[in-house]
Design a binder for these strands. Structure first.
Length: 768
DNA sequence: GTGCCTGCTCACGGG
DNA sequence: GAGCAGGCAC
């Protein structure tokens, strides 16, 4: 039996269609990664293609990591020579080798969003553009989308003729590119654009890569932008052994230039392309899939396809509406705890997905309160954190002083008494002599008007020199530790944060960075600081999802693409949040369709059970907003839903009557769907709700009781005792309620206020 | 040059 | 609600 026997007919066809252009329309959960990995294996094992002739491109590091793993385990020996990478890292590797042909130094630095912003700000100041009238963001967005479409500053200028705003953008764009070049920097979009430029300018380089990458596969093709498409088209060249895999229904990156036409028009560009559709879904139960189909059906302009599954119908899609975001979050944590207790699922099988990162906080809090193991994926990019960027800026400066942005960043971190005035003087000195900022620092005694700052600058330069000496002996990890200690960074953080907990978080992040450095040093034969810094530049999140099988995952819908979970919770299903308020007024425009595709992505992540939740009111932009149930929920036919509030969840008129002020505050454990109250307890509705036992709440919420597995152990603390919680610190136990399967403990924390939690999860320690 | 206060803007997503 | 930029006092 061969490894290909487990594939269905279409999948096998796709695996064997190795020559010429192939468009693989792969619906959600139809096993596209399986096809891709088997295709790699087939090329190597059956077609005798050397592994290094194969290129598999993905969008995210996560996808690349997963693909790598699966290729490794399927192909075995030689698999490491298959080039599996993201667009950006592929370009990075190419440019590191050849960008000198475009007049850049091969040791260019990568500008992240922060660096971009400060660069744009400098330029606006220089060009005397009032950033109150045109914001930096507007420029950044315009520049980025120009690059996505491979529009050069000069072309932009031509296009902008006669338009004031566009003209401004064009001049900022031009200055921005000049500045980048001067600083030997590239931003993320440049990685793609410059690679295309390189290929067009140097046919011999292109030929070399065409010869190397004889078989190209592109995952998530629906998300490619013009630059990426051009890159692929160039690489595929005359051989055209190009296999693109995508699902137009899952195109969710229009905001960063994804051109859905790339997939819709693939057959126009490659008229002889084979098209294979994968429509059998192996992931979700019937009800979940039907719900997904019902939602996506509302989009116009898609390639028609109907996903089907041979799996059972499964349980219906649950829908719950809550009074506010707290109750929603609490329900989710509570529900997961309950399912795990009953042995119906494991933490690692559950994922909570949301539209905006801002939603993660409440969910996270409820996880902490319930004591559930969880992890937030994404959020603030690890390498974008202040403390990480500070230390990396030191390392960059130690490695070479060429990165002006990095040097400027740390010159006064920690405080050295070198302020803006000195910085400006140094800057103009450097500019006049055409030397780097760090070189200007080294010659600070020749810079006019520095005064007392001069000594401080000399001390800083000396400090860097000492670090450079140490860098020759120390490993990267030791170097990081030494940098942190010698600049007194921990003290600086304590000073800045004022909050010990925050400082500790930051220090922990730095420990993580050291861990990362250690791993790097161990896994590379000849580890260098330069290479480490280069590698780190493109990584979004420090750790992969490996070894996370024991935790509930919290992430945005965008990060969830490509993943699957037994239990999926989609939180915040409200008009105004999801779909976002920006896409609402435009009705059924492109924006709304993209939101709907995102909903489709979310729904199709679920294998066995899908739960949709929303809140009637939610804190947004500092004010409480009332939101209607998301239209995406309403697009799901009622018979697929288990809402335990029949027909009552959508009542816009009633929404209008309700004033925020007329409601009494609700106790923490009132997580019942509010609509239930309305149908059941009309007259009494506004009376404060007195917390009932969880069991009865379950019954109210329409959830049957399961058999408890948890043994009731005696607690070593009682009412009035002082206890310690890992996150909230110390507090006093106010109340302990015995529940059928656990104790419910009410604690008044000194810092965090009153919380209610389950003893078996919260692991409270008695303070002697 | 620094620290504090105020007021403003932004919460949509990633490499 | 939070983070940041700008203004102001020391």
């Amino acid at each position: 039996m061969s490894i290909y026997d487990t594939l269905n007919k279409e999948q096998r066809e796709a695996v064997a269609a190795t020559q010429g252009p192939l468009l693989l329309l792969a619906g959600a959960g139809s096993g596209k990664t399986r096809v891709l990995t088997h295709r790699v294996a087939y090329l190597i094992q059956e077609m005798g293609v050397p592994p290094w002739n194969i290129l598999a491109i993905t969008f995210t590091n996560k996808a690349a990591g997963e693909m790598r793993e699966r290729v490794d385990s399927l192909v075995g020996a030689g698999s490491s020579q298959v080039w599996v990478a993201t667009f950006h890292s592929t370009c990075l590797r190419i440019l590191r080798r050849y960008i000198d042909r475009l007049g850049f130094d091969n040791h260019f630095t990568i500008y992240d969003t922060d660096d971009q912003k400060s660069l744009v700000r400098d330029i606006c100041r220089r060009l005397q553009i009032d950033t109150k009238q045109m914001r930096e963001k507007e420029f950044m967005g315009a520049i980025s989308s120009a690059k996505d479409q491979l529009i050069s500053p000069t072309e932009y200028q031509l296009k902008a003729m006669g338009d004031f705003r566009l003209g401004k953008i064009a001049s900022v764009y031009l200055a921005y590119q000049e500045e980048l070049k001067k600083n030997n920097g590239l931003d993320f979009d440049d990685l793609l654009m410059k690679t295309v430029e390189l290929f067009k300018a140097c046919p011999e380089v292109l030929e070399q890569y065409q010869d190397r990458f004889r078989y190209i596969m592109v995952d998530e093709y629906q998300d490619t932008n013009t630059a990426q498409f051009e890159l692929i088209r160039l690489l595929a060249g005359e051989r055209r052994n190009l296999c693109v895999v995508g699902d137009d229904d899952q195109s969710i990156y229009r905001f960063r230039g994804a051109n859905i036409r790339n997939i819709l028009d693939f057959e126009k560009i490659y008229p002889d392309a084979r098209v294979i559709r994968l429509e059998q879904n192996y992931r979700s139960t019937g009800h979940i899939l039907e719900a997904a189909n019902a939602v996506i059906r509302n989009n116009a302009g898609r390639k028609e396809k109907t996903l089907w599954t041979s799996r059972e119908k499964g349980s219906r899609v649950r829908f719950r509406q809550f009074e506010n975001g707290y109750e929603e979050a609490e329900f989710i944590a509570e529900d997961i705890a309950r399912l795990v207790k009953r042995g119906q699922t494991a933490y690692g099988e559950c994922a909570v997905l949301y539209r905006t990162n801002a939603q993660s906080r409440l969910l996270e809090e409820s996880m902490v309160t319930m004591g559930l193991p969880y992890r937030v994926v994404g959020g603030v990019n690890f390498y974008a954190r202040k403390e990480i960027k500070d230390i990396l800026a030191y390392l960059k400066t130690v490695d070479n002083g060429r990165d002006d942005v990095a040097v400027k960043r740390i010159l006064n971190v920690p405080r050295r008494g070198i302020g803006d005035t000195s910085l400006d003087r140094l800057q103009s000195f450097a500019q006049a002599r055409n030397i780097s900022f760090f070189e200007a620092l080294e010659e600070a005694d020749r810079v006019p008007g520095l005064g007392r700052a001069g000594t401080k600058i000399a001390a800083f330069v000396e400090q860097i020199r000492v670090m450079r000496t140490k860098a020759r002996i120390y490993g990267i990890k030791e170097l990081i530790r030494d940098v942190i200690e010698s600049i007194g960074y921990a003290e600086y953080l304590r000073d800045q944060d004022g909050d010990e907990e925050e400082t500790q978080d930051r220090l922990n992040n730095l420990e993580e960075l050291m861990g990362k450095a250690a791993v790097y040093s161990q896994t590379h034969e000849d580890p260098t600081l330069s290479e480490f810094l280069e590698e780190v530049a493109l990584v979004a999140d420090i750790d992969s999802l490996e070894g996370e099988s024991e935790r509930v995952l919290l992430m945005t819908l965008h990060s969830a693409k490509g993943l699957e979970f037994s239990q999926v919770y989609l939180a915040g299903m409200e008009d105004g949040l999801f779909p976002g308020y920006l896409s609402l007024p435009s009705g059924d425009s492109q924006d709304m369709e993209e939101e709907r595709r995102l909903a489709y992505v979310g729904i199709t992540r679920a294998k066995d059970q899908l739960t949709l939740t929303c809140a009637r009111t939610r804190m947004m932009r500092g004010e409480t907003q009332r939101n209607a149930v998301s239209r995406f929920v309403r697009e799901i036919p009622g018979e697929l839903l288990d809402s335990s509030l029949p027909g009552s969840y959508w009542e816009p008129e009633k929404e209008m009557e309700r004033e925020a002020g007329e409601r009494e505050p609700v106790p923490a454990y009132d997580f019942r769907p509010r609509a239930f109250l309305r149908s059941r307890a009309t007259a009494q509705e506004n009376k404060p709700f007195i917390a009932q036992g969880i069991g009865s709440l379950n019954r109210i919420a329409g959830i049957s009781k399961g058999v408890g597995e948890i043994r009731l152990e005696a607690l070593d603390y009682g009412e009035g005792d002082r206890v310690n919680h890992t996150k909230y610190g110390e507090g006093t136990v106010l109340k302990i309620d015995r529940e059928p399967r656990d104790y419910k403990v009410t604690v008044l924390f000194d810092r965090a206020g009153q919380k209610i939690m389950y003893a078996s999860f919260a692991k409270l320690k008695r303070v002697p």
